[in-house]
């Protein structure tokens, strides 16, 4: 595990040093790119709680990513148009304050995860994969056919939302905020994996029957993990929407779900920093290969196929060797 610790430390240092270097050499574009990677990493860290820890292959996490995004879009657009969110029974205004938006994004995605999880977790295996995919698609079509918030065209926000005491329009400041949220997500994931809950969840992943025999409830454990997982991904969605100052049904699309899974796998499943490594690699590839060819998805597909067929364990697994796992 020492090599993995070394790798993780280098990754963290890189995440701090790279934007500072970009700032010093006056390349704000690279800071935006790094912000994108950090936010997508947070979405991956969220999914990894369900996927890595709980063994739940969710292909519907775009639902939570999109709900977080739309929470930001809806609140900010109401505030910017001075149009109350609801007027009855009491008048509630929109808001452009990031902490408030984040809390609402967290609550909304947690609720959605609770509903989707409660239904989907009645099944397992391949049914679970297909059902989460279908629920994700349900939100996608709902967002397209609901005209109040832009429908198919999406919703633009004129100015990035504010954070008390900080100037979020400065790319480096917004990067710092996103990195702080990623760090928070990583701490949650780390503590969760070490906690009695995490150990019980791991037991349920390895053998649901044995877990039941010692008095644990796999359904309850999985549902809790799924909700925490969806909530973190929802927070990433709110940040992502703020980065682009734009939300659209694309955030709900099945490709988004697929890409979040790809971050986790490219980096390494069930490793704390796996999604971070994966998202950084993905955004780098997108930038480098996207510059080489319009058809860069072919190369991404070939690389992914290679990782699945030959390099199991992802980037961290190939560099640091197999994880110490007791299953």
């Amino acid at each position: 595990m020492r090599r993995e610790t070394l790798f993780n430390t280098a990754l963290c240092l890189g995440l701090v040093a790279f934007p500072l270097w970009a700032q010093a050499t006056d390349q704000p574009f690279l800071i935006t790119l790094a912000t994108r990677a950090v936010i997508l990493a947070l979405a991956g860290v969220g999914l990894n709680i369900a996927l890595g820890l709980g063994g739940l292959v969710s292909l519907g996490h775009a639902a939570f990513f999109g709900i977080g995004g739309y929470a930001m879009g809806i609140l900010a657009s109401h505030a910017q148009n001075y149009d109350p969110l609801i007027e009855w029974p009491l008048s509630i205004e929109g808001t452009t304050s990031m902490p408030v938006i984040w809390l609402i994004a967290l609550a909304a995605s947690a609720l959605a995860a609770l509903a989707i999880g409660a239904l989907s977790l009645r099944t397992s295996g391949v049914y679970f994969i297909m059902i989460t995919l279908a629920f994700g698609q349900m939100f996608y079509y709902f967002a397209i056919s609901w005209p109040a918030y832009g429908g198919e065209d999406g919703l633009s926000i004129y100015v990035r939302n504010g954070f008390p005491g900080l100037n979020t329009l400065d790319p480096l400041t917004f990067y710092g905020l996103s990195l702080a949220m990623l760090a928070l997500g990583l701490v949650v994931a780390w503590q969760l994996a070490r906690s009695p809950f995490g150990l019980a969840l791991n037991a349920a992943r390895q053998s649901a029957m044995r877990a039941r025999t010692v008095g644990l409830s796999p359904y309850g454990l999985r549902l809790t993990a799924f909700v925490i997982s969806g909530t973190l991904t929802g927070l990433a969605g709110a940040l992502f929407a703020d980065l682009n100052r734009f939300v659209s049904p694309t955030m709900f699309s099945w490709q988004t779900s697929g890409e979040i899974v790809v971050f986790v796998i490219l980096g390494g499943v069930a490793r704390l920093f796996g999604p971070v490594a994966g998202a950084v690699l993905f955004v780098t590839l997108e930038h480098v290969l996207g510059g080489v060819s319009d058809y860069w998805h072919i190369y991404l597909g070939a690389l992914l196929l290679g990782v699945v067929l030959f390099a199991r364990g992802g980037l961290i697994g190939s560099i640091c060797g197999p994880a110490v796992r007791h299953d």
């Binding site: 697929g258 790809v262 699945v308």
Partner: peptide, 8 residues
């Protein structure tokens, strides 16, 4: 994942 890669 492998079949997702095939889609791409």
């Amino acid at each position: 994942l492998a079949t997702f890669a095939l889609i791409l």
